[in-house]
Design a protein around this nucleic acid. Sequence first.
DNA 1: CACTCCTTA
Length: 938
Amino acid sequence: MIQEGQIYTGRVRGIKPFGAFISIRSEEKSKDGLCHISQISTRRLESPSEILKTGQEVFVKVIKVQNDGKISLSMKNIDQSKGVEILETETMESRGQKRRQDADLWELTQMNNAFGAKRIALMGNGGEDPYAEVDEAPEQDSEEEEVEIEVSKSVPSFLKGKNLKLDVDESALTVTKNPEGSMTRVAQYGSKFMSEAKTRKLEKKKEEERNKRLEEKIRMNGDPLNQITRPTENEIKKSAYEEWQRQSKNQSYGIRSNMSIKEQRESLPVYQKRDELLRLVQQNDFLIVVGETGSGKTTQITQYLAEEGYSSKGVIACTQPRRVAATSVAKRVAQEVGCKVGEEVGYTIRFEDCTSNKTIIKYMTDGMLQREALVDPDLMKYSVIMLDEAHERTIATDVLFALLREAVIRRKGGLKLIVTSATLDSQKFSRYFENCPVFHIEGRTFPVKIFYTKEPELDYIQSSIETVIDVHTNNPPGDILVFLTGKEEIDTCCETLVEKMSLLRAEKPHVSELIVLPIYSSLPSEMQSRIFEPTPSGKRKVVLATNIAETSVTIDGIYYVIDPGYVKVNAYDPKLGMDSLIVQPISRAQADQRSGRAGRTGPGICYRLYTKNAYLNEMPANTVPEIQRQNLSYTILMLKAMGIDDVLGFNFMDRPKEQLILTALEELYILDALDENGVLTEFGKRMAFFPMEPLLSKTLIQSIEFKCSDEVITVIAMLSVPDIFYRPKEKRDEADRIKAKFHDYNGDHLTLLNVYNKWSDADNPRLWCQNNFIHEKSMRRAREVRRQLLKIFDNLDKRERQAESSVISCRGNWDLIRKAFVSGFFKNSAKRAATHDPDEGSYRTLVENTPVHIHPSSSLFRKHGVDYVIYHTLVLTNKEYMHCITKIDPKWLLMYAPRFFKTADSSQLSTKKKTEKLQPLFNRNDPKENWRLSKGRR
DNA sequence: CACTCCTTA
C-alpha cells in the first residue's frame, strides 16, 4: 500500500505547461489493479520543461491517498539528490528566504477528471510498458445538488495594507468639470424627447399587436417612412451615379493630377519647416510636434527622416491609433516614394504584416508597437519612432510614452522619439519628455464660424432636430453633420426628421429634399458607405453620427456641424467590475475637433447647442485619458511581463487612480498570474503570450487541461469580435427568430460555437450570413483570431517542448467548455435572486452582490431554471446588464476557483442540505487540504 | 426588451 507521508520514487510521464504528470512505483497494485498518475503543478518562474524531463526519476512525497485510490503528491522540500525531506526550523528562516520558498513552492494539485486524469495499468513483469496510459472517460455531471456558495477572497501579501475597499463616491465616475452645471444635469436626466419617442413606439407596437386590421390598413396605404424614402433612394442612386461619373471624368482627379507628386509634397505646410524640423530632431532625443490637420506631418516627417539618413541606423516607425489609418497612410507614402507597399514603405497591423527586410518606413498601430516592446524593450530595430495622434491618448500610446521615454534614455542617442500633440497639452507633453522643444506646424483648413446658443438647451435631441430643419430651410447648400450619443438616438432622430420633412414639404413644396443618413459602428459597412455617396444637386444630406465621425470617418462636403455637446463615455467601475456607458458633456478639445469637421472642404459653420459660458466653464479642457477609465488588467500584465514590478510607481504621464491599478493587480493574483508577492508566475508569463484580456487568456490555457481547447479557441475568437448578430429595424422579429435557431440550452458561449461551426460548414458563407442575419465581416475576423490563437498554441507547445498539440477537441462533451470558462471567469458569476425578490428575473453578482440583469440579446433571456451563471461582461446602460451569459453548476466554482469560493456557512444550511453539503470549510493555503476539493464527486 | 469607440503574437 502506498503510505501517506512517505517519499517515493516517481517518473515524469509528460510535461504540461503547468507542471507534469508523475507516476509512482509501488510494490502492490491498487484495488482495481490500476495505479494513478498524478498531476503536479508548479508556480516556479521557470518553465516546467526547464526543470523536468520526460522519463526522469523524481522523489515525491505522498500527501494523501483517497478512498478511490487517487493520490496527492508534493515535491516541496524534498531533497532531489537524496530523496529525503529538508527540515527547516522557523528561527533559521529570514523573511527573504521565506519569500523565495513561497515563490519556488511546488504546488500540488489533486488530479481529477476535469484536469485530464489518466490511469496507467500496472503490469508487473509482463514486459509491456508498465506505464501504458488508459484514458478515463470524462465523468458525467451528477444530478443537481444544492450548494450554497460564498466568496472567500484572500488578500495576497503584496496587497496587504493597501486600501482595496472603495468609497462609494470614489467608485462612481467623476470626470465632469462642473457637476452643478446645466449640461451635467441634462446629461443625467436625458432627453425628454427621447423618452417620449420611446413610449410612443411602445404604444404603437401594442396597438399594432392588438389590431391586426390596422396593420393591414397601414400596409395597404404604405408605411409613411417607406413612402418617403423608397422613391428617393432610387433617385439618389441614379443621380448619384451620374454625378459620380461626371466628377470622375473631370473633377476629382483634376487638381491632383495637375500637380506632380513632388509639387504636392512641396505644397504642404510642413515642407517650409523641413530643415528646422530635422535640425531639432538631430539636436534632441525627444521632440513634441504640434501639427494641425492638413499640415502633412503624418506622411512627410517619416520621409524627411529617411532622406536625412536615419534609415541607415534603423527603421523609422510611425504609430497610428487605428488600423485603417496605418494602412491608408502607408499606401499614400509608398505612392509618394514610388515603391510598392511592403517594400521601402510598409505597415504592420494585427493579422497583416506588410513589411520586408527592405522596409525603412513602417506605419503601425500603437497596440502593435506595445506588443513589440514586450519582446524587445529597447526597440533596437528602430532609429526614430513617431507617436502620431498622441493627443487621442489611447492606452497603448500612454504606455508607450513611459516605455519609450526609458528606452530613448537607455539608448543614448540611438533612438529618437517624436510625439505629436494638440496645442492645448503641448507644454505638459514637453515637461514629461525632459523639457524637450515644441515644434509648431500650422495646418491648412478653412475657417469655421462658431455659433453658441444664448440659453442652455434642456432637450438636445429636440433642438438638434429643429436646428437641422432650420439650417436646411434657411441656409445655402452644404451638407450637415450632427453628433449624437448613440444608436437609439440616431435612429429616433432619423425617423423624426424624415416624418417632419415630409410634412413640411407637403406644406411648402419649394423646400428641397433632405437625405437623412445614420452612421455608427454597428451599422453594416454597405450602409455606412452610403454617407460617402455625393449629394445630388438641389438636395442636401444630413448625417447623424456618433463620435465615429470625430476621428475614424471623414465625410467630404460637410459645411454645417451641429454639436449638442454630449458623448457616451465608457467608465470602468473597478469595484463592481462594470463598464458604464454614461452620457457626459464633451471636452473643449472634443468640441474643437467636432467643429473642425466643417472646415475640410471649404469655410464652414458650427452650431453649438450650448452656451459659450458652458463651453468655457462647464466643459473640461481635455477628455479623460482612456488609461484612467478602463480595466487595466491586460495592461498591467504586459508591464509585469516586461519585468516592471512596481506598477504603482510606474511613470505614467497621467497616472490612473491607485484603485484601478490595485484591482487589476488583484484580478491578476486571483487568476494565478501573480504570486503572493506580486511577482509574475510562470502561468502569468504564459498568459501574456495572448493578445487579450487576462480572463480570456486564463480560460484559453485552462482549456488545455479541460481537453476542449479546440472549441474554447473558437468561442474566444467569437468573443473577440464585434457583435455578430445583425438586427435591421424592419426585420427585427425575423432576425430574432432565426437567431433563436442557434441558441444552446446552456447559454451564449455555446450559442457562439454553434454559429461558428454552422458558418464554417456552409457551402456559400456569404449567402449563409445574409440568410441568417449575421455580419460576415465579423465572422471572417473571428476566423483570423482563431488562426492566430492556433499559432500561439503551436508556439507555446514548441516552447514547452510538447510533442503533441495542446489543441484538443472535447468531441461534443460541451460541459468541459463551460467548465473551462468557469476556471477563467469565476469572478464574473451571478446567482438568481430569491423568487420573492420584487425584481423578478434579476440576478446578483457573487462578488459584490450587485443586482444585475440578463441582457435581452442573451439566449438565456426569460429562461427558467438558470440559477448560477457566468458572464463575459457587465455593462451599465439602461440597466446593469450581463452580456454573453452561460449557465453553470455552482459546484464548479468550488472546484475550479478554490482560492476564491467556499461553501456558505453551515449554520445557514438546513439539515437536509447539511448532509448533502459538499465540503467542510478548509484551509485553502494548506496543500494537504487540497484533496478535499474533489471528494464526494462520485 | 437592447449596443460610445478602438486595439493587441
